[in-house]
């Protein structure tokens, strides 16, 4: 199993659509290094696929530590999956969150799509560590676009990297 870079870039504005995803890998891994401009200590964002932004076709569960207690929960059926919190404008300066999102069997046309997210942030006195699983259960279709949203907007220096995970000798960008 090997990992190959597909796409990379700065995060600007309040969202991101990663389109034209090659259909030649077994899995995808999205890495976000990000902070929000929202006037709060933390902010959340949304994850959707193939611009399916209206259907109640998503759900997720999580296990989370805030440094003092552990919480388990579920988002419930929704029009998106929330990804774990990242630091925002009133958080410690220069602190960014880091999320690793695994998207499995993304080219399948017979399976609903499962994801796994790990990460979050530590801001020297506050912070979160999160494991999350989610599912997109629209009538199965291959994922060709990933849609990301963020509360208010991305702070400067936020960025993403998308990788393909291969079981063969495919070539990355």
């Amino acid at each position: 199993m090997s990992m190959f870079p597909i796409a990379s870039g700065s995060l600007t504005g309040s969202g991101l659509n990663i389109g034209s995803i090659p259909q030649t890998f077994a899995h995808l891994q999205l890495r976000l290094f990000a902070r929000s401009t929202a006037a709060a200590a933390t902010a959340i964002g949304s994850l959707q696929f193939n611009s399916d932004v209206l259907g109640n076709n998503y759900n997720s569960h999580f296990l989370q530590s805030d440094g003092t207690s552990v919480t388990a929960g579920a988002q419930g059926t929704n029009t998106y999956i929330t990804w774990p919190v990242i630091p925002a404008a009133s958080s410690t300066s220069n602190v960014y969150g880091y999320l690793i999102v695994d998207i499995f069997d993304y080219t399948s046309t017979t399976k609903n799509k499962t994801i796994r997210v790990s990460g979050s942030y530590d801001a020297n006195g506050s912070g979160v560590a999160v494991y999350k699983s989610g599912i997109w259960f629209k009538t199965p279709e291959a994922i060709s676009t990933i849609n990301l949203g963020i509360t208010t907007g991305w702070a400067a220096n936020s960025r993403f990297d998308l990788y393909g995970i291969s079981t063969s000798n495919a070539t990355g960008a």
């Binding site: 003092t68 552990v70 020297n124």
Partner: peptide, 19 residues
């Protein structure tokens, strides 16, 4: 250095933080 963690020992979960 500071940290926040989430851990489990097979029967219980725990959280911790330090700066």
């Amino acid at each position: 250095y500071s940290y926040t963690y989430l851990t489990g020992d097979g029967s219980a979960t725990a959280a911790s933080r330090s700066s």
